[in-house]
Design a protein around this nucleic acid. Structure first.
Length: 955
RNA sequence: GCAGGGGUCGCCAAGCCUGGUCAACGGCGCUGGCCUUAGGAGCCAGUCCCUUUGUGGGUUCGUGGGUUCAAAUCCCACCCCCUGCACCA
């Protein structure tokens, strides 16, 4: 047996298959309009189907599955649908790679167990294959999804396609989409934007905005690039690279002097022109140019650090505030040829900043002991430092005129505007680092035109989204703020693409709507997908569906008869579709649960679009967000060998075990949960134990009720409440903890306390409630056992058992706690005695006298010792010698204050203690006698405290 | 750089928002015991340090300050770590 190389299939997989098929067949997961019941609509973002679903998908979607079951058992009418996402470029790109015979891609497919790789040259094959697999695999794990509403995106699904087109027409009509241009990192060879995923180098690099400023030169306008336009007031000279080649670039109305290396970049940013002449860098040296703002005449000087491929290949020198400039000038002073010129230059102090004097650059260079401009590392650090403090804390000095007194961070944009308005400069985009395309050509910044934008910058729109977010629930609550932040941060979004799968944009049919933009309001589509995805069944001809259909169904526009006629529908069908939407989408969907990566894009966009399209009363109600699942404490990855698809999990761990471990892996929240493979076995064994125990003892037991039976009942109620409360808040780890582990611990204690002499009815309630709880976690195991103990009904649609409040439940709970403390203390004592070599045959447990309990109450209600003594005096110290009394109070005041018992009465304590005598003897393996203090002579007995009997050992 | 999150007793991880009941939930690991032919599982006890024929004391929650009768919990500064930054699902 042990030699088996592969994991044996879980004993419960067949149980899962059996019941899952039946549940599906019986339609218990189908959400149908029922006005008698409150609805609960939960959904999980449709996964992109370029591969198998994995544990990451399973983790988040299992929370959706769980809550759908919990809510159903609480009496809600539940809708939990699932579609699949095919929009975008990856599938097409992957299919292309197959067609090109790329080995890596083919290998990936083969590893997935696909034999006929050829077929995957066709992107449609991918969609067909992987959406089918996703469906299959979700079923393997027994997801309770209403599959009648399953769909895929893109034009391959004409109904969905029409729905998306309708949405974008709405947005267009509302003026929320517009045509514009924007800068992208662009591959001149492939002729399209290079996203992160198709870069060989330069991941994460984005175009950065800089300012170009034109200095007057005898041959035209010398263009310098700067990140810090505010230092234009302090330019002492210009830097060029003496070994680079510069050109006079005629752009029509003026002649720009820039580096030859950047001419292409200028062209891509639509500064068209032609090169008139080339000038060697060294020829420009010592030429004079004029600062367009201050009118100062400054010389051009050589510097090694100038990169002729960045910006314009020319920069300005501000030695007072730029360490590089200061050092370069200092270096140059040593050069005979330039000494005279350099000595004449005067540093100009521009910015007042705490901690620095007039010339911060000079100070920091001296402090860091930077010797020359070759010390690049130090200089970069110094530059960063100066830039940071000056930007945040720096204030512009008087010579700035209208800008004087402003913080740099506030003045910057104003200065840029000023420069642009004066016509002496313009904005430009550069790449802060080199980007290399997959095709190995170097990326440039290109301004793309004819791009369509969604206007997320719209203030009014943002405000409405904020307003709605305030009304929503978030799990965890802390992410509400993140959503607010994201709404503020989101800028206009380019939503059209040249290539990829998807829906064409109605106002420019050459463009495809990209994937994030076509997945914004499809949750509403689920409500009617039942009809549109099964058109024949309802006599619907999708090709006849027009915008008026969606207008009517989603927005209530138009009248039934006309709309039905226009869309070739039976009026009753249309009415039902509208009704279905109204029912499920009333108050919005109830919960969308997703990975945390979608907060900053999809989820926020989803809110924007809902607010734009749907009226108040149909907007999302709540969002839950999860971290990324780890496996055994490590990020899941194929290279680490801890990557599991749903199918892997089913085969290796078993469906129920996987479900259980996923829910137990973590609570809702952005922390990364941990799926522990080693607890699979524990879970399975616990389940087997319970199953066996139930089979053996269910329906048996005594009839008379004891305190401990009541205790178990109280526990069942308490833990059920905790399970439901945590479950409803998606705290699945805690829910499982209370609903299973603590339930099982309670049962174990109960069996120990009763010595397996269980009370039939109490045990029956325990078992049934345990199965109710488990049917939210592992419904098939629960159903199987439910069936075995003689129930014919389908457990997932049964309600929890309502357990009546037990009147003295607090007292009962306290007594068990008391008993555990007592047992612990006694064990400790006996251990000590044993260690000492003392023989002990019997132990007296001596309950304190009544007056001690009176003191207990007094102390609990009193602020301090004095108050206790005063009150006691009034009562004549309860007939106790005042000295004994005060000694006792002195000794026990602190302990009593900390004591947890509030409800347990002394006579109950004694009564139940007598009932528990056998249990104590069994546990301690010694004779036990319960006594009252007044009946015992031994001096040790006086040590008794309320709720802490004294022990007297007898040999 | 900007934004968000986090540093807790070997590991994972509660608690901190609503200061005290916190030496600090729970799980894993480890140690000892019971059980067992044995291993596994299960059960019991222990797992910061010291002390103790019994309920005791000390020092802890990234670092350093502060507020308070009282701080893991509130405030300030600092150090370190993680994630996202868009045309991509």
């Amino acid at each position: 047996m042990r030699q088996e190389r592969n994991h044996r299939e879980s004993r419960y997989n067949s149980v899962v298959r059996k019941w899952h098929d039946l549940f599906i067949k019986k339609g218990i997961y189908e959400g149908n309009v029922d006005f008698e019941k409150d609805k609960f609509f939960v959904n999980f973002p449709y996964p992109y189907i370029n591969g198998y679903l994995h544990l990451g998908h399973a983790y988040t979607s299992m929370k959706a599955d769980f809550i759908s079951r919990l809510k159903r058992k609480l009496g809600f009418n539940v809708l939990y649908p699932q579609g699949f996402h095919a929009t975008g470029q990856p599938i097409i790109a992957a299919a292309d790679r197959v067609r090109e015979g790329e080995e890596k891609q083919i290998e990936i497919l083969k590893k997935m167990g696909i034999e006929n790789v050829e077929e995957f040259k066709d992107p449609l094959k991918w969609i067909e294959f992987f959406s089918e697999k996703a469906y299959e695999h979700l079923n393997l794990l027994g997801y309770g999804i209403d599959w009648r509403r399953k769909f895929i995106t893109t034009y391959l699904n004409p109904a969905y396609d029409k729905f998306i087109r309708w949405q974008y027409k709405k947005l267009y009509d509302k003026g929320l989409v517009y045509k514009g241009s924007h800068p992208v990192v662009y591959c001149p060879k492939d002729k399209h934007a290079i996203g992160d995923h198709d870069r060989a180098e330069g991941e994460g690099v984005v175009p950065e905005k800089v300012v170009m400023i034109k200095f007057k030169h005898r041959k035209g306008s010398l263009v310098i690039m700067t990140y810090r336009p505010e230092t234009l007031w302090g330019v002492t000279n210009i830097w060029i690279n003496p070994s680079a080649v510069y050109v006079v670039y005629d752009v029509g109305d003026e002649k720009l002097i820039i580096s030859r290396d950047v001419v292409e970049n200028f062209k891509f940013q639509e500064i068209e022109g032609r090169v008139l002449e080339e000038i060697k860098g060294e020829e420009l040296i010592l030429d004079e140019v004029e600062n367009p703002i201050t009118g100062d005449k400054v010389p051009i000087l050589p510097a090694k650090f100038v990169d002729s491929t960045v910006g314009s290949g020319i920069v300005m020198s501000v030695p007072s505030h730029a360490p590089y400039d200061y050092v370069a000038l200092r270096d140059l002073e040593k050069d005979e040829r330039y000494r005279e010129v350099v000595e004449r230059l005067k540093m100009i102090s521009l910015i007042e900043v705490r901690g620095y004097g007039e010339f911060p650059a000079k100070e920091i260079v001296e402090r860091m002991e930077i010797k020359s401009q070759d010390e690049k590392e130090k200089l970069d650090k110094a530059t960063k430092e100066i830039y940071k403090v000056e930007f945040h804390q720096g204030v512009l000095k008087d010579l700035f005129g209208i800008f004087a007194g402003l913080y740099v961070k506030d003045a910057k944009d104003k200065i840029i505007r000023f420069i642009k308005e004066k016509g002496v400069g313009f904005e430009f985009y550069i790449l802060p680092e080199v980007v290399i395309c997959r095709c190995l050509s170097k990326g440039v910044v290109k301004i793309l035109h004819d791009q369509w934008f969604i206007k997320y910058s719209d203030k009014n729109w943002k405000d409405k989204v904020h307003e709605h977010i305030d009304k929503m629930e978030f799990y965890p609550e802390s992410i509400k703020k993140v959503f607010h932040d994201t709404v503020d941060w989101l800028e206009d979004w380019v939503f059209t693409r040249e290539r990829g799968l998807g829906t064409r944009f109605p106002y420019d049919e050459s463009k495809i709507i990209e994937s994030l933009s076509d997945s914004t309001i499809y949750m509403a589509y689920y409500t009617i997908a039942k009809y549109l995805e099964n058109p024949k069944k309802y006599g619907i001809d999708i090709s006849k569906i027009k915008d008026s259909f969606f207008d009517y169904v989603f927005l209530g526009l138009g009248n039934l008869r006309e709309v039905a006629k226009e869309n070739g529908l039976d009026e009753r069908v249309l009415e039902r579709i509208r009704e279905e939407f109204l029912y499920w989408y009333k108050g919005g969907f109830d919960l969308r649960i997703s990975g945390k990566d979608l907060i900053k894009n999809h989820l926020t966009m989803m809110l924007f679009h809902h607010v734009a399209i749907f009226p108040e009363g149909f907007l999302p109600k709540s969002i839950g967000v999860n971290g990324f699942v780890m496996v055994d404490g490590e990020k899941m990855s194929k290279s680490k060998g801890n990557f599991y698809t749903l199918k892997d999990a089913y085969e290796i761990f078993g469906a129920e075990e996987t479900r259980f471990a996923l829910l137990y892996a973590g609570n809702i929240g952005i922390d990364d949960p941990n799926f522990e493979t080693k607890i699979i076995k524990d879970i399975r064994e616990k389940l087997v134990w319970f199953e066996n125990y139930v089979k053996k003892y269910y329906g048996k037991g005594r009839e008379d009720v004891k305190e401990i039976d009541l205790w178990l009942m109280v526990k069942i109620k308490h833990l059920t409440d905790l399970f439901i409360e945590n479950g409803e808040n998606l705290m699945t780890r805690d829910a499982v903890k209370y609903g299973f582990f603590e339930m099982q611990n309670a049962l174990k204690w109960y069996l120990r306390r009763t010595g397996n002499n269980i009370h039939e009815e109490t045990f029956k309630v325990f078992v049934e409630q345990q199965l109710h709880i488990l049917s939210c976690i592992i419904p098939h195991y629960a159903q199987e056992l439910w069936n075995i103990i003689g129930n014919e009904t389908l457990l997932p649609i049964e309600r929890f058992i309502e357990i009546q409040e037990i009147s003295d439940s607090h007292e009962i709970l306290e007594f068990e706690e008391y008993l555990q403390n007592l047992l612990d203390d006694a064990k400790e004592l006996l251990m000590l005695m044993e260690r000492k070599g003392n023989k002990v045959n019997k132990i007296y447990m001596v309950v304190g006298d009544e007056w001690k309990y009176l003191v207990y109450d007094l102390v609990k209600g009193a602020k301090n010792m004095k108050e206790v003594m005063e009150k006691a005096k009034e009562e004549g110290f309860y007939g106790i010698d005042p000295k004994t009394f005060s000694d006792f109070v002195n000794k026990s005041f602190g302990k009593i204050k900390k004591s947890p018992f509030e409800y347990l009465e002394r006579d109950k304590e004694i009564e139940w203690l007598f009932e528990s005598k056998e249990f104590l003897e069994r546990e301690l393996n010694i004779k036990v006698e319960i006594k009252e203090e007044k009946n015992v002579k031994d001096a040790k007995s006086s040590r008794s405290l309320p709720y802490k009997p004294a022990f007297v050992v007898v040999d």
